[in-house]
């Protein structure tokens, strides 16, 4: 009789211990190990990526008062812009590189924000692509978390793509 009573008590104890364990497991799973969402970083990176390209393309350069968008279009097209009036056309690529270096150096690189920027021409009738400018900083390749923005500039002959990846 006494043996049976103690057995029942042990079963009761085991049930209580099991219930507490299951409760704790649920608590740990859903409350303690809750994924940490960083809303601010997501917002800032996404604004940064889209604004960088938008603002960059609108910027007026010291090359015949052309905007970066004009320079990209010229570079992807007929290469007619002569910035220093020396008779040699095709200065747009050089100017693009110069401006991009100055802007990225004083923004994303100064703020130590890893990024990868690429401007390339996608040929309409064959599959190749021609890179105009490519620049990166920090670890921004492989499986790194990133926010990516692509901007397409239609030109007479081909499409010009600009992509900017901001990595965390």
């Amino acid at each position: 009789m006494i043996g049976k009573k103690s057995q029942a008590e042990i079963v009761g104890l085991v049930i209580i211990v099991l219930l507490i364990t299951v409760g704790l497991l649920f608590f740990v799973r859903f409350v303690v190990l809750k994924p940490n969402s960083d809303a601010k970083r997501d917002y800032v990176d996404s604004e940064l990526a889209s604004n960088m390209i938008n603002v960059l393309l609108k910027t007026t350069t010291d090359c015949k008062k052309s905007t970066m968008s004009d320079l990209f279009r010229d570079c992807a097209g007929f290469n007619r812009i002569d910035c220093d009036d020396d008779g040699n056309r095709g200065d747009s690529r050089e100017k693009i590189e110069e401006v991009i270096e100055e802007i990225f150096n004083n923004t994303l690189e100064k703020w130590e924000k890893p990024y990868h920027f690429k401007a390339y021409i996608v040929r309409k009738y064959n599959t190749g692509e021609n890179t105009i400018v490519e620049r990166s900083y920090g670890k921004c390749s492989g499986n790194v978390d990133r926010i990516s923005r692509t901007y397409v500039i239609p030109t007479d002959m081909e499409s010009l793509m600009l992509t900017l990846d901001i990595c965390s």
């Binding site: 601010k40 603002v55 960059l56 609108k58 910027t59 007026t60």
Partner: peptide, 22 residues
């Protein structure tokens, strides 16, 4: 303290040009 940087175009109405600002 939180610092947020946003690239913006700066418009000069006198010269009708845009520069890159933050």
């Amino acid at each position: 303290q939180s610092s947020t940087k946003v690239p913006v175009s700066l418009y000069y109405p006198v010269t009708n040009s845009y520069s890159f600002g933050v």
